[in-house]
Nucleic acid binder design. Structure first.
Length: 711
RNA sequence: GCGCGGUUAGCUCAGUUGGUAGAGCAACCCGUUUACACCGGGAAGGUCAGGGGUUCGAGUCCCUUACCGCGCACCA
């Protein structure tokens, strides 16, 4: 009897040792796996942001992916799970900037590009190392020899290559358009990086001047100094007589020229049914101005301050300017109505800054342009079709609707960012000339901007395999099998990977998308720093063992649904690990002098149990293939505890003691234990591997490469 | 406004193609016997949110209402 078995199971001393054993075996790397393996199974790990440490959401991700990989590895697949980290451009830069501001009182402009990048790289390196060690603690059986970073040399080559290709195909263009400007972060952001917050606001109804015939409503009077038109619905009888007329006015001491136009975009039911058109500070108005060939004067600058007007307005913050203009309207008796309304205000996800729509010269990806090489399909088509044709399946399936809905509303993707940490836009300027790609030589100026972090993340399934080089890995492992990630980045990431892979390779990036939900605290609240209700996966592993944490995360957590985690729940699975440990002790004590026959002869009831086990394994194998890990884990727990331990072990005591069909009982104990250990291994790899090593004293095979039971 | 989820035992949640309602935790009673008190045995607990429909049969399919959560759009 192994001495370790005489004491309760201790995950703390065991798990580190076992992980080392796995790493040294080389089996994380598909090239080193035993036997000839033809079929591949590949997962690209969603690279965690190098902004800090891992949380329980990451732990769930790692657990799910490790379960899939270990299961397929045991089934004889050539399994590749490729790990990595994400530079997370804005998120990382703003985090480091905040720290520098706090500690040294300096901004990024005080330190300069080079110094800031140096600091961010240092931070990213540190953060990376923490993250990697956390992933290992969770028991992840990923191939560290292929680890990638979204901002390393190879990934930069992939980014530059695809940027040039898209530019040459006319899919990437530089244009002056309204963008989402974050005055706090001093950068543009994409539509998807906006979060709407409901706030109370005032809706003002007024006229520009006494002799202007139409009342308009707005919640942002300060933008009205940039108005060029008043738009009404073409069918709105109230205003028909005015359409086409033009007025020269003075609004808050600023001369403006207003044309009355008719446009179908106007909702006659809202407000007065007439809309003041501010092309430079509203997406819809900008489009309207394009249709009606109107001027687009900018009145607000990058710092959300007024860029026009005299003493009263120039340089004032928009909120102050609003007060000034409302006061002026009151004094001129032009203000007809003030109402309290609820308003969804656009804020930047990372900085919390209030978005100011501004016209800017930026780089965009055209999502509607037909691509010759792809049968004249647009990027939008390429993103939609694999799901329509069922080439890519989403689990749970109902998320497909959300996905399609997003595609419908998709506009051109603004990819340039005015931050320094990220892939530099590979464009060079000299006077009017533009060169995309390599530095053409001296006298050329490099674009100052960097790319949206999701641009490089979009390449993840194939940039990690060496693309644009034609590598063996690329042909072997792409398309990947499962993309497992949180539902909150379905648009950010999943859609962009489909876009990039379909465009660059003409194939899907993955066959299945498995979406997990948010891990919440025991009360159902999101874990956050401000609430201080976060649970650290490392602490859990320390206190209860990574196995217990994994089980607690997975049992009952159906795909796509949010789950709750508590120390109480985790403790229950620590007990489970110990239960397996103790059951093993019992089995070993009773079978030490017994040679397990290859085909045991069971008595009637043992035969029945043996058959039940086979049926059970069949059932859970089917469910494993259907990604129902939340069910399998629960069933295994229940089967081990309440069938194997409570019934079979208890029954065997009688038989062995009375020596009545004792051999039958012993054989049954042993086969049950070994079979269940194999089935449990993907879920709780550490304790099962440890027990396996005790059982297999003379035969040193690792459980991680044993065959998954099949009948 | 459009869309997607949810509503099942005291709590947290599962529930495969429609076929007698499940688990964990908590609470209750009993128990120290070849592993395990990080334990065992036992019992209790549910009009499956409300209403309607399809069906021999509905937690499951369809319609509808209410409430909760989320996503998208938009309020000029």
């Amino acid at each position: 009897m192994d001495e370790k078995l005489l004491k309760p199971y201790d995950p703390k001393t065991t798990e580190k040792r076992i992980y080392k054993l796995w790493e040294e075996s080389g089996f994380f790397n598909p090239d080193n796996l035993p036997d000839k393996r033809e079929k591949t199974f590949t997962i690209m790990m969603p690279p965690p942001n190098v902004t800090g440490v891992l949380h329980m959401g990451h732990a769930l991700m790692i657990t799910l992916e490790d379960i899939m990989i270990r299961y397929k590895r045991m089934q004889g697949f050539k399994t590749l799970w490729l790990p990595g980290t994400d530079h997370a451009a804005i998120a990382t830069q703003s985090k480091v900037e905040k720290e520098i501001q706090k500690k040294e009182g300096k901004s990024r402009y005080d330190l300069g590009r080079e110094e800031i990048l140096k600091r961010i790289n240092e931070f990213a390196k540190e953060s990376h190392d923490t993250i990697i060690s956390q992933i290992k603690v969770m028991g992840a059986s990923c191939d560290w020899s292929r680890e990638a970073f979204t901002l390393d040399k190879k990934r930069n080559l992939a980014v530059n290559t695809i940027f040039k290709k898209m530019y040459d195909d006319g899919l990437i263009y530089r244009g002056n358009r309204i963008v989402n400007w974050d005055p706090k972060g001093q950068t543009t952001i994409s539509d998807d990086e906006i979060v709407y917050e409901e706030r109370n606001a005032k809706l003002y109804t007024f006229k520009y001047s006494k002799d202007f015939p139409i009342f308009i409503s707005t919640s942002r009077p300060e933008t009205k100094v940039g108005d060029v038109a008043v738009a009404v619905h073409p069918d709105d009888k109230r205003y028909t007589e005015f359409v086409g007329k033009e007025y020269d006015l003075e609004f808050c001491e600023i001369p403006i020229h207003i044309k009355i136009i008719a446009d179908k975009e106007v909702d006659p039911e809202f407000g007065t049914g007439a809309l003041g058109v501010t092309p430079a500070h509203s997406m819809i108005d900008w489009e309207m101005a394009e249709r009606h060939d109107l001027l687009r004067p900018q009145v607000i600058n990058e710092y959300a301050k007024m860029s026009v007007g005299g003493e009263k307005l120039l340089g004032k913050k928009t909120t102050e300017a609003r007060e000034v203009i409302v006061e002026w309207l009151r004094s001129q008796d032009l203000l007809e109505k003030e109402e309290e309304i609820k308003q969804n205000i656009a804020t930047a996800e990372r900085t919390g800054g209030i978005i100011e729509p501004l016209p800017k010269l930026q780089w965009f990806i055209d999502v509607n342009k037909p691509i010759k090489e792809r049968n004249n399909k647009s990027l939008k088509d390429l993103m939609r079709e694999p799901f329509e044709k069922d080439e890519i399946k989403i689990i749970p399936e109902y998320f497909s609707k959300t996905y399609f809905h997003w595609i419908e509303n998709l506009r051109d993707w603004c990819i340039s960012r005015q931050i320094w940490y990220g892939h530099r836009i590979p464009v060079w300027y000299k006077g009017e000339e533009i060169v995309v790609g390599e530095n053409p030589g001296s006298g050329w100026r490099e674009d100052e901007d960097t790319l949206d972090t999701w641009f490089s993340s979009g390449l993840w399934t194939f940039s990690t395999l060496g693309w644009p080089e034609k590598t063996k890995d690329l042909t072997t492992f792409h398309p990947t099998d499962v993309l497992e990630t949180g539902y909150e980045i379905l648009f950010f990431w999943v859609a962009r990977m489909v876009l990039m892979s379909e465009y660059a390779l003409g194939e899907i990036p993955f066959k299945n998308v498995f979406l997990h939900g948010t891990v919440r605290d025991a009360k159902g609240q999101k874990m956050s720093k401000s609430l201080n209700n976060g649970i650290d996966p490392l602490e859990i592993a320390e206190k209860f063992g990574a196995d217990a944490g994994r089980m607690a995360l997975i049992v009952g957590t159906a795909p796509g649904t949010d789950s709750k985690i508590s120390e109480e729940k985790i403790k229950g699975y620590k007990n489970f690990a110990n239960k397996i440990w103790n059951a093993t002790r019992f089995v070993l004590e009773n079978t030490k002098d017994f040679n397990i026959p290859e085909t045991p002869s069971y008595d009637e009831e043992d035969k029945k149990s043996d058959e039940e086990l086979k049926i059970f394994i069949k059932e859970i194998t089917k469910e494993m293939d259907e990604y129902k890990f939340h069910l399998v884990s629960e069933k295994l727990y229940h089967y081990f505890w309440h069938t194997f331990a409570d019934i079979i072990i208890e029954r065997s005591k009688r038989k062995i003691l009375e020596n009545k069909n004792g051999d039958s009982a012993k054989a049954l104990l042993y086969t049950h234990l070994t079979t269940l250990l194999k089935a449990l291994h993907p879920f709780i790899p550490f304790v099962t591997e440890e027990i396996w090593s005790i059982l297999q004293k003379e035969n040193k095979n690792l459980l991680m490469v044993e065959k998954w039971p099949s009948y």
